[in-house]
């Protein structure tokens, strides 16, 4: 019932134990070369150049490839060559579990098939145009929010509009839950909805009626709902190599985006009401 990576799925289901998973991860760490080591193995970088890259990375927030370009060690096409080589030689966790003896080949195939079925509901659906989502975060975030609204709050909402820019002034009393993130992309996700919609989310999360006036309980539950969306978002984007570190959830009105920030507002609608789901990315 969540976005998982295959190793954790096997662990949670008792197929493997923590020692077996750690052994497989250790195998991957030894086998899957990092960018710099791959470039050296291809003869594109020297150890001395890699040391210069690391020195630059201590003063500038750059990925290894970006630093190599800045220092004039590599060109764009060589970066692509290294990335292709990394991708082609990458040992996935399932293969690592077979290599370390935790799983047999037939077991791997069987559990992979079951895992694909388990994760099928979390495939990112079309909805928000790619052009409106330069960071690549808003589309999966909004999609996961819609899926968890249905699964956790029994709210079958649809995406009814997407706008870029600040939130409109609300016409009803609302609550706003917020979860920040740092990492490859910085920003936050937020959910703003009427107090009655948020109370409905809280009631579903707690399995008991919660009054819209009970702000502390409604906000805690709505923030936790958003935390689940954020955590699953970080798992989903990790599959494409992006790292997101979540902050503890909070609440409070969102400010309008400032220079360098991009705010996408996805409006979800259902007969019960509307939700504004906000994805703010970029640093001010």
């Amino acid at each position: 019932m969540a976005v998982r990576f295959f190793g954790q799925y096997l662990l949670e289901n008792g197929v493997i134990d923590p020692k077996q998973l750690l052994a497989a991860i250790s195998f991957q760490e030894k086998t899957n070369l990092k960018f710099g080591d791959t470039a050296i193995s291809l003869g594109l970088l020297t150890q001395e150049q890699l040391a210069s890259i690391f020195a630059l990375q201590r003063t500038k927030d750059l990925k290894t490839g970006e630093a190599a370009i800045e220092l004039g060690f590599l060109k764009d096409e060589q970066i692509d060559q290294v990335l292709r080589a990394q991708k082609n030689s990458h040992v996935m966790i399932g293969e690592a579990l077979v290599s370390t003896g935790a799983l047999g080949r037939e077991q791997l195939e069987r559990h992979l098939a079951a895992f694909k079925i388990d994760q099928e509901p979390y495939r990112i659906a079309e909805g928000i145009a790619e052009a409106k989502d330069p960071s690549g975060i808003a589309r999966p975030a909004a999609d996961l929010a819609l899926k968890f609204l249905l699964r956790l709050a029994n709210l079958n909402m649809k995406l009814v509009g997407v706008t870029i820019g600040p939130l409109e002034e609300p016409t009803l009393d609302t609550y706003t839950a917020r979860v920040g993130f740092t990492g490859d992309v910085g920003g936050e996700i937020a959910l703003r909805a009427s107090t009655s919609i948020c109370a409905r989310i809280a009631s579903a999360m707690l399995g008991e009626p919660v009054s819209p006036d009970n702000a502390a309980v409604v906000l805690d539950a709505t923030s936790e709902f958003l935390n689940v969306v954020g955590g699953n978002l970080s798992a989903a984007v990790a599959r494409s190599g992006k790292k997101l570190e979540l902050s503890t959830p909070g609440h409070g009105e969102l400010k309008a985006p400032v220079g360098g920030q991009h705010m996408l507002v996805a409006r979800f609608g259902a007969p019960e009401g509307e939700i504004d789901f906000v994805v703010l990315t970029g640093r001010p």
């Binding site: 969540a2 998982r4 966790i93 955590g231 699953n232 970080s234 790292k243």
Partner: peptide, 8 residues
């Protein structure tokens, strides 16, 4: 945890 699906 909600980040239980992140391998790292």
């Amino acid at each position: 945890s909600s980040v239980g699906g992140v391998a790292d």
